[in-house]
């Protein structure tokens, strides 16, 4: 906990007000509506509605397919989070170390983040295309017949790799900014104390990066869970079929595509509760180990 010096005055409230206000109006009001809708079955155009109690929740939780999707979501999020963090950290540390071309590397590595998501997805899909994808061709050289959209594991792998590819630059930028903000005095001291760069990284740099790292961990989990549905959609070409999908994609399918407001709301409430529990757990278990000063 921060040593608090400033007492209360009007200032903190004034500073908090805009954010809280926006959050209440544009998040909690709509979210409350989603919670309400989860207890109803209603025509989206407002033609009629029936209060169904917890039936929507029951329907979701007793669906075999939902369990299958949940399992995939778990592995998907785990892999995407781990690899996008690990790759970005490695690159950020290296970009922070090298002398020549540091600037160019930085720019080049941030570059991809700028590409428009629909095209990023399109490129990803074309890379893995089952008929003309270069990656499929490479796999064929090794005697493996890769078939996105047909083979469950191939499709899952493509989704995971494209998702990682899109997220690495974000993590890279944040890690680099975290590294750059490590005070010079600390670096110098570390340089003298620890000769081995490997040890120096784990004993000095990594703990200093922990606040950023923890932030990124949470952000990446939410990315993997929530923001990847565009990638998933483009990989399966808007036809889910028997392909793997995540929980949020299912929310999108049922709510957005299928106009089932009640069912999709129930799914998002369940999802939100799960992720909230997960983050509380992380704050309890991991943040405790993060030293802030």
């Amino acid at each position: 906990m921060k040593r608090v010096i400033f007492g209360s005055s009007w200032l903190p409230y004034a500073f908090l007000a805009p954010q809280i206000l926006i959050v209440i109006i544009f998040f909690y009001l709509p979210a409350a509506e989603a919670v309400r809708a989860s207890f109803y079955l209603e025509n989206p155009f407002g033609g009629g509605s029936t209060f169904v109690g917890i039936d929507n929740y029951k329907d979701v939780l007793t669906d075999d397919n939902y369990v299958r999707v949940a399992k995939f979501t778990f592995w998907f999020s785990l892999l995407v989070t781990f690899f996008s963090l690990a790759i970005a950290l490695l690159l950020a540390v290296k970009a922070d170390t090298v002398l020549r071309g540091a600037k160019s590397y930085r720019i080049l590595l941030m570059w991809v983040y700028a590409i428009a998501p629909p095209v990023a997805g399109l490129i990803g899909v074309l890379m893995f295309d089952q008929h003309v994808g270069p990656i499929t061709d490479v796999a064929a050289l090794f005697g493996y017949k890769m078939q996105i959209g047909v083979n469950y594991n191939d499709t899952a792998a493509a989704m995971i790799i494209i998702s990682i590819w899109k997220q690495v630059p974000v993590n890279f930028i944040f890690f680099l900014s975290g590294l750059q903000s490590i005070p010079k005095a600390v670096r110098e001291a570390a340089q003298i104390d620890c000769r081995s760069s490997w040890r120096r990284f784990w004993t000095v740099t990594f703990p200093m990066l922990a606040p950023t790292g923890f932030f990124l961990l949470i952000i990446n989990i939410t990315y993997a869970l929530f923001d990847t549905f565009a990638v998933i959609d483009v990989v399966m070409k808007n036809e889910p079929g028997s392909n793997p999908m995540t929980l949020v994609y299912k929310v999108y399918l049922d709510g957005f595509r299928g106009s089932d407001l009640g069912g999709s709301s129930a799914q998002s409430v369940i999802l939100m509760a799960l992720v909230l529990l997960l983050t509380i757990f992380q704050f309890r278990m991991i943040e405790r180990r993060v030293h802030y000063t």
């Binding site: 903190p12 959050v23 709509p30 989206p44 929530f226 407001l261 998002s268």
Partner: peptide, 30 residues
Amino acid sequence: AIVYFRIPFATLAFWVIFTTLLLPLEVRIL
């Protein structure tokens, strides 16, 4: 405001803001 002030409900305020990460816009779009 959350980090530097001893205000009541600072933790609550943080969680109120934080929770917004957990429900993407697509879900609450209507």
